[in-house]
């Protein structure tokens, strides 16, 4: 367990949303679009006051009510919202890091339903509003380590996935959880060939139930921008980023290890477990060090931490396992 201690630099008791001015982290594209849309609506209705003070409900980014969490990571400088929202791997919207921010605008995040299926007492469908109200939303800052060798520090908003799983009544035979992402060829026309779409990811049941595994609905105190996996995703901070499926539409409980997109595409490069491990190389590069996004090129590389620094909470999940074999 992490023990919260006062942090003189970032002031860990203050939600991150209070630190950064809203103007700074509002998605500019959305903001401009919303402002233009509200302007058009206002003109049509001849409501001058609307032009001067555009309605808040038009904004795509609605502020979330959050509470602090003892599971948050302290003592790290946060990556800027600009970088978190403009340096993304979301291949359905293109393979370049800047593609998702440019192309994900068409992702229809409302209404949004998540299907609960597989080995559960009763399959069901949960809508996003139910998910948002199921449990108090927590501010949880985590290190985020991409398998490509870069990292960020991201102030997510959400609650432990275990809270949702408890309401799904999985059967004792359920050993794995599969996450399936939104898939529509017309909306995600940038998705490259050669991959099994929809994007699929999976966790062992005990990994999914670990309190660190975050059902994530927000970022920097607001709802998730589309390119970061709106409206709901998971974050598994001790694993490489691709394990943290975005824009989830189905959660399926299974007795067998589910097939996952990157593992299918290149099993020698992306294992099912993919725990952050500085001692196990990717075939094309060492994982011993990482570069922190947003720092200048001359900044020294950071040492990558075992389980991304979350070993105290998760190392016991892998007792007796050969992590070189189960990479």
């Amino acid at each position: 367990m992490l023990i919260r201690k006062p942090d003189p630099v970032s002031g860990s008791n203050i939600p991150s949303s209070e630190i950064t001015p809203k103007e700074k982290w509002l998605n500019r594209r959305t903001f401009i679009a919303a402002a233009a849309a509200s302007g058009a609506v206002a003109l049509a209705g001849n409501r001058l006051s609307e032009i001067l003070a555009p309605s808040r409900t038009v904004h795509a980014n609605a502020k979330l009510q959050t509470v602090p969490s003892p599971l948050t990571t302290t003592g790290e400088q946060l990556t800027s919202l600009q970088n978190i929202t403009h340096y993304n791997n979301f291949y359905e919207f293109g393979t370049d890091k800047s593609d998702p921010s440019a192309n994900a605008g068409g992702l229809p995040t409302r209404p949004w339903n998540v299907k609960i299926s597989g080995l559960v007492k009763a399959p069901k469908v949960i809508d996003i509003d139910t998910i948002l109200k199921l449990h108090p939303l927590e501010d949880r800052t985590y290190r985020f380590r991409c398998v490509e060798g870069w990292s960020m520090v991201v102030p997510w908003v959400g609650y432990s996935l275990s809270e949702l799983i408890k309401t799904c009544d999985p059967l004792p035979s359920a050993k794995y959880v599969q996450f399936l992402s939104y898939w529509d060829r017309h909306v995600e026309k940038w998705a490259p060939g050669g991959y099994n779409w929809p994007y699929s990811e999976g966790l062992r049941m005990d990994e999914a139930m670990n309190p660190l595994t975050l059902l994530t609905v927000g970022l920097y105190g607001d709802v998730l921008p589309n390119q970061d996996g709106a409206p709901v995703r998971i974050i598994v901070p001790w694993k490489y980023g691709f394990k943290s499926a975005k824009s989830i539409v189905q959660i399926k409980f299974t007795d067998k290890q589910p097939s996952t997109t990157w593992n299918d595409a290149a099993p020698n490069e992306y294992g099912f477990y993919s725990n952050v491990n500085p001692n196990v190389d990717h075939p094309r590069w060492s994982q011993a060090t990482e570069r922190r996004i947003g720092l200048p090129f001359y900044a020294p590389r950071k040492q990558t931490l075992m389980f991304n620094g979350y070993g105290d909470q998760v190392a016991s999940l892998y007792n007796g396992m050969n992590l070189k074999k189960y990479y």
């Binding site: 970088n83 403009h86 340096y87 890091k97 870069w150 570069r291 996004i293 947003g294 720092l295 200048p296 090129f297």
Partner: peptide, 13 residues
């Protein structure tokens, strides 16, 4: 770009 700090989120890349 290096002088004006405009190499983007991942300057090394």
């Amino acid at each position: 770009d290096a002088i004006t700090n405009n190499l983007g989120p991942d300057p090394t890349k």
